[in-house]
Nucleic acid binder design. Structure first.
Lengths: 253, 253
DNA sequence: CCATCTTTGTGCACGCGTTCACAAAGACAT
DNA sequence: ATGTCTTTGTGAACGCGTGCACAAAGATGG
């Protein structure tokens, strides 16, 4: 996974643990694959293997949704697909806007995994006037000026931010003011949002840094124990933090 | 966040909790921003606010690294930047290969956040012969046939998979066989890897599904309680699982 | 040198999530 | 109808992560 939730106060919604919710899409994917193969039923053991989780965990997860299995047999694939889809809210259509149509934003617009799960890209928005009208993934890019109108006209409640870090908070504020209550943030910034607004963050460089940590540990300990700690004045030289700024990540204090 | 770790057995490396490791890049980013502003010291309260976490949590996190603060004053920014960078392994250069240069792969290749953190894109690899030699982000794409040689020649230990789901496991196997021990997976598939190999998964559609769940709950309960549960034969119609297949996500059982 | 004030570092308790292990439930054969 | 066999659903124990609250440590001023 990437970097997970942002300060959700563990608000176990209707008794379904957050950790369980995060796994439901995983189960759904495995079940969908089974459905395509016309597999009628599946045991918790098999499904758990396909989803890469413990079978006891899977059974407990499902128990939060209800008793949908049959002892001695397993789970009805089609039925479970429906139940999980409904629980996740995928039986309805979710219009989504993507703000910031750079490399990443364009890739997201082209990403098939959205539309296939009931998420409809209602609009692409960018601050660059030169982009306006230019079609990306078959959808014409609109200018940031019209953001509020776009949100309102399309009844958008989910926004995706793929802008540079410097613009993210401002875009976020406008999205929230216009009525968006769920945000998927790809910009490397901590977003401040009012209560009632959900933010999930995907940070590519953070994922790599976590991998690097474990990688170092695996490679580790034999070469260079790096004994003498440098003084406070010593600056590391390898990690020159380049452009691509997270400049506005810190408040003026 | 995206979808986090995959089946790491909570192997608290050298006493540093996994949850703490996941936050270190966050602190590092906030600290780097402070460093650029030439702020000399910062209190746990200020830094916690900038990173969007609890100050007690931040102090406990830092306590795992050592006693780097000064009571009554706070933390030396430069010193802390160095210590965290070293702990994360960012003081060394990490050559990375990206496999699968489609929309997403190309966006990743162009992403500035990698190079700025000590991650160097050593090679771009794609299975399409038509892509071979074509430069993306200034780097010529190479064919999958040369994957093993590329890994070996460049001493790559971190691989990024941005292929379609159907190709992911196969690419993963080849990467691992060639010596890669850390994988960042963007393909919507559960990857099977031998012990000792770390996999982190970033799944865009899963993030949206989690948001949709909470969104449904927020919008919730007033409209359509949807009482009568459909029979097992009833198939939901809205979420027609389209193309963009996660076909090979499930084993033949 | 002493008092005061700020801020760290951490002991402790609590809650969530995971896992084990097993009883209950149903299918299926006889 | 009864017994056997498979698999679910869950009670209970455990471990990790979080947050409170405070004592220890050092800076700073008199």
């Amino acid at each position: 996974m990437a970097t997970g939730r942002t300060h959700r106060p563990a608000t176990r919604s209707r008794g379904i643990p957050e950790a369980t919710v995060a796994r439901l899409p995983l189960y759904l994917r495995a079940l969908t694959a089974l459905s395509e193969r016309s597999v009628p039923t599946v045991s918790s053991e098999e499904l758990a293997a396909a989803a890469g989780v413990n079978s006891a965990k899977l059974r407990k997860d499902f128990s939060y949704l209800g008793s949908y299995g049959t002892r001695g047999v397993g789970y009805d694939v089609e039925y479970l697909v429906y139940q999980i889809s409904r629980e996740l809210g995928l039986t309805q259509d979710w219009p989504v806007v993507i703000v910031g149509i750079g490399n990443l934003g364009a890739a997201l617009a082209n990403y098939g995994g959205f539309a296939s799960r009931g998420f409809r890209v209602a609009a692409l928005i960018d601050a660059d006037p030169a982009m306006a009208g230019k079609p990306v993934a078959g959808i014409p890019v609109q200018h940031t000026d019209d953001l509020e109108k776009i949100i309102e006209d399309n009844g958008v409640s989910i926004g995706v931010i793929a802008t540079p870090a410097g613009a993210a908070q401002q875009v976020c504020d406008r999205l929230v003011a216009a009525g968006v209550t769920s945000i998927l943030n790809f910009a490397p910034t901590v977003l401040a949002v009012p209560d009632g607004v959900d933010v999930r963050k995907v940070d590519l460089s953070i994922e790599l840094q976590i991998l690097a940590f474990h990688e170092q540990r695996k490679a580790g300990e034999e070469a260079g124990p790096d004994g003498a700690a440098p003084t406070a004045a010593t600056r590391k030289e390898s990690t020159d933090q380049g452009p691509e700024g997270d400049v506005p990540a810190v408040m003026p204090a």
